[in-house]
Design a protein around this nucleic acid. Structure first.
Lengths: 181, 181
DNA sequence: CCAGAAATGAAACTGAGTGTCACACTAGTA
DNA sequence: TACTAGTGTGACACTCAGTTTCATTTCTGG
């Protein structure tokens, strides 16, 4: 049900533009009431961004699963493969979603906000990996944040190339541009 | 005028909580109409975050002013002194503002959005510095973004310490945690 | 003093998000 | 079969942010 609503909403957003579509339009197009739609997605944006829910935990888990002797930067790079996977499975859909999000200020902002919440999760995973302390160090927080930036910038370039460039390569390049010594 | 409105708004937000204060409250407290308030600040959030307007250009200019032979990471670090300055001039006010912003989801999100827009500006400044190309390279974009993360994380720790830790030192540590080789 | 520009205020309007209540449609139980 | 509790749904009223329009005041230069 949730998935169906999201699908209808996505198509409508792409066709009409996110801002032109009202909650009433969405509800009508999906054949449910406004109330119901809002019960599934707390906000209009969530109808699109709900797809990213749980990614933070998945990446953090992937990070914890990396060998303990791997350096943090490399571990972070590999943990992000969890996210990249999605873009390999259905590149066309991923491209369309990414484009919609980046082209719509409201969606872009919310997505940024959501992705920003991954940082503490990743930093904590790094802290656990390093064993010693409970709280992440400043360095671990910074590296977690930087890794997410790499993902963001890589996606930027991938989007600009209409999906023609290799996302894995772009991400590798981004990480290389910042490899800590 | 703008400054006075912002001041009134800030005090009200601190006392009552950002979400509890409506536009009507603000207008009444400032002795102007709702319309006028909204003409000065397009949104409630801007009454607080307007203080950060123009920072992007200032930092970018500072970056362009760095010696051409300085490596990008060092230049970025020094360019951020432009921002840090504000926190040295009036630490108490800066602490209060930062706390309000970080404690209020809506403000935090908008601030993130605003700060995010600094990235292209910094990346372009890096591109100009490097002379050759017009558009920033992927690496330059990543480093610009990472530098902003360093600022963010350093402020996080500074805030957690109630302003007792040295912000310059924290920022140096953050940059050191990510120094490219 | 006056004409035009700029700032202000009033009010109606759209649309997002919240909260409440009532109604249906189940599924388990006696 | 009748009862009941849980769950999904719709209808509706409400608050509030932000936009737009228009009238009115206040400044400012001539």
């Amino acid at each position: 049900m949730r998935a169906q609503l999201a699908q209808v909403a996505f198509e409508l957003f792409c066709r009409e533009g996110f801002d032109k579509v009202t909650l009433d339009d969405l509800a009508a197009a999906a054949g449910v009431s406004r109330s119901t739609f809002l019960r599934y997605f707390g906000t209009k944006e969530d109808a699109v961004l709900g797809a990213f829910d749980g990614h933070d935990r998945r990446v953090a888990d992937a990070l914890r699963a990396r060998p303990a002797d791997e350096d943090e930067w490399t571990a972070l790079r590999h943990a992000l493969d969890t996210v990249i996977e999605r873009y390999h499975q259905d590149p066309a859909a991923a491209l369309a979603t990414t484009r919609l999000v980046r082209e719509t200020p409201a969606l872009c902002a919310r997505h940024l906000e959501k992705q920003h919440r991954w940082r503490p999760a990743l930093a904590e995973a790094l802290a656990e990996r390093s064993g010693s302390a409970e709280a992440p160090t400043l360095g671990q927080s910074v590296r977690a944040a930087a890794a997410l930036d790499c993902l963001y910038v890589a996606l930027d370039h991938w989007l600009a190339s209409e999906g023609r460039l290799d996302l894995v390569g772009l991400l590798d390049d981004a990480f290389a541009a910042l490899a800590p010594r």
